[in-house]
Every structure is written in C-alpha cells, then in structure tokens.
Design a protein around this nucleic acid. Structure first.
Lengths: 205, 205
DNA sequence: ATATTCAGTGAACGCCTGAAGACTGAAAGA
DNA sequence: TCTTTCAGTCTTCAGGCGTTCACTGAATAT
C-alpha cells in the first residue's frame, strides 16, 4: 500500500477507535460529536469529513467491527466446546471474556440496537441475525437438537441470542470479580439450561 | 388542590408528556434538550427548572410512569389469563397491545436501559426486577411450575422478562398489520413455549 | 386591604456544535 | 523534474445549548 493510503487508513482507524473510546468512557454514541471524536483521534474537526460523512456513517463502520468480533466469538466458542457436558459453562465463559475485552463494541451494540439511528438499528439487527444463523449452523452440525428442523433451531437460537444480548447489558454494568457479577453469570448459565431443556422437549405444533 | 398547585402539576405533566412525545417522534432521550422539551410543552426554557433540575431528573420521573404501566400490564395479563391452555397467546396479545398504546414509554425503557445515565439505567433495571417479581408471584399462585422453588421461578421469570424486553425493541421497529410483525409475535410465542417446556423439565442441580 | 409567594417570562452569557471554504505541504504521477 | 492529488489545517459562520438573573402578575396568606 502506498504511503498516502496507509496513513489515511491509520487516521480512519484512529477515528473509529476514538469513537469507541468515548463510548467506553461512558458516553452514549448518539450524543458523541464529530469534534469530540476528532479531538480524541488527534486531528482537527474538519479532517473528519475526509473519512466519514457524519457520525452515522462512522457508526455503520463500527457495526462492521462488531460483525468481525461476533464472528470470532462464534469461532472461539466452537473451538472451546470439546466436552459436550460443559458446553454451556464454556460458552458463558468465552462470552464473558469477549465482553470484557471488547467492552466498547458491546456497549455500542446494546446502545445502538435500541437508541441508534434507524440505519444503525437495522445494521445491528442484521448482524445479530447473522450471528444467530452461524450458531444455528454449529448446532445443526453438532446434532444438539436432532429432532428439530432448521426453522425450529433458528427460533431457539434467536432466543439464545436474545438472552445473550439482554445479559450483555447487565454484565457491562457489573464490576469484575464481584459477587453480583458471578451471580449474573450463573443466572445466564441456568437460563441457557432452561432453553436447552425446552428445545429438547419441543414437539411440533 | 389549590389553583396554583394544580396548574403546576399540569405543567409538570406537560413536560413529561413533551419528553415522551419527542422520544416517540424518533428522538433518542439522551439527545433531547431542555429547550426542546420546554418548546414542545409550550413553556419558556427557563420554566423547566421550576419542575426538574435537568433532563436526568425528568427521566427518573418517566421511570415512575413506566413502573405504573408495567404494573398495569401484569394486572391485565392476570385478568386475561382464564383458559390455561391459551395463556401464552393471551399474554403476548396483551403485551403487544400495551407496546402499541404506550409506544413512547417502551421506547424510553429500551433506550434508557442501555443508553441512559447510570442513574436511569439503575432505575429501569430495578423496575424490570419488580416486574419480574410480580410475575413470579402470579406464577407461584397459579402453580404453573409446582416443582420449582421461588429462586428457580425467579430465574425462569427473569428469562421471560429478558425475552419480553428484547422482543419489545424488535416490535417497536415493526409496522402494525404486516407479515413481519405477525411473524415476530409468533416467534415470541414459540420462545415462551420453549421456556415453559424447559421450566417444566427443570430438575435441581 | 395589604404583603408575600412563586410559576412562568424574557434577555443575556459563554460554550459547543456541524459545516463551508481557502490553504498547506508531502506523496503520487507525468 | 514538474504537476497534480489530497489528507490534514485554520478560520469563520450561524445556530443551538445549559444556565443566570431580574422581572411580572396572579394566587395565596395575613
């Protein structure tokens, strides 16, 4: 890559990271201004426009980062799930790790899904759907619920994704290594078990 | 009530409704300004301070309105649930009705839970917990899951509330009387069934 | 009847915002 | 080598923001 393109890519990345940093520091993405982002990225406000039309466009690019993160999360969970009995515990453990290490992205996700622009809401909804479909694919391959057809598996997996997303909001507000945090993770594991039991019992119609 | 106090209460109510109206019109509560709210309420910006210190304090009062709404929702669902077989369909139907008729409040709830100030997030989390506890009380009384102790019932009900909250965000973005909307309601009903099946199968440890 | 209270007014403040436009200087291309 | 491209700079603008303060006038209290 040419020097110019490389430097541009660097600044662009700095802008995306700046926005995430501001979200991480407690800001709501919807309230973050172009000037704040530029300042955090170490450039002048007007240079922002060389990369994005507005914060909405930047947000859509953050959804792409989120997409990559969720994809990696699915892969990590798949690789981690060796023993079939502890699959729930492993999944929750990996999820917790990802939420901690990508706090900013998950905060952006939960905020954006409910309070973003219509475009951003749609993009995140779409990413969560892809996320769900990838899990469906894995569950189908592992024959976790052999009695279910793919539509039924999707319905159950959507419930899993719903539960994960809701729990993420709670987990993001709990400090590490506290009783409350541990209890919340235990709750999530139990809820996964309920869903798994229900899915195993599912009979058509 | 004296004339003065009555008029003050009216203006206060107008401010709360103005904020909700702005949320309903697509604004994110976090981005709504004092001046916008005052304008929508038909008063001068500075008069806002006669009622609330800032938008955060107003938001906390909106949580109280949300609280009342959720309480009423529980009551309506309880009264509606006559036939035990159709309880899930009735519950989803009542929920859908409430989301339609109190759009603004549910939008405020989903936005505030993920993107509000720490105070508002906490207040909404608390309301949802109370909501869950009320449902637990109902389920216990109806002996829906006789094998479960109250802690287990709470765990399952939290899953129900999680599912409701997540679905609410989706439902708020879908137009009435469309295929997608109907499908989303069907999905929710099926997920309720999975949870109910799982809860019935739950064995300790 | 007179004095006090107080919800709502209106002007003013300094600050931050998104955006437009002319400019700079190093990299890319001829 | 000379010209062009273009990411980033600097200045400037109008407009919205939260907040202050002195004020008004009707409701209340004495």
């Amino acid at each position: 890559m040419s020097i110019r393109k490389e430097k541009k890519a660097q600044t662009r990345s700095a802008l995306l990271n700046a926005a995430l940093q501001l979200v991480k520091e407690g800001g709501n993405f919807a309230t973050i201004s172009i000037r704040e982002i530029a300042k955090q990225a170490g450039i002048v406000p007007t240079a922002f426009y060389r990369h994005f039309k507005d914060t909405n466009e930047l947000g859509l690019n953050l959804v792409d980062e989120l997409s990559a993160c969720l994809r990696q999360l699915v892969r990590s969970t798949r690789e981690e799930s060796t023993s079939n009995s502890k699959i729930i515990n492993n999944t929750v453990h990996v999820l917790d790790e990802y939420i901690q290490n990508h706090r900013e992205l998950f905060m952006f996700m939960t905020q954006g899904r409910t309070g973003g622009t219509p475009e951003i809401r749609k993009a995140i909804r779409n990413e969560l759907n892809v996320f769900s479909l990838e899990i469906v694919s894995d569950l189908a391959q592992q024959q976790s619920f052999p009695a279910m057809n793919s539509a039924q598996l999707k319905m159950v997996t959507d419930l899993l994704v719903s539960t994960i997303t809701y729990s993420t909001t709670d987990l993001l507000d709990l400090q590490e290594n506290t009783v409350l945090k541990t209890e919340r993770l235990t709750l999530l594991k139990q809820q996964f078990r309920v869903i798994a039991l229900g899915a195993a019992e599912w009979r058509t119609q």
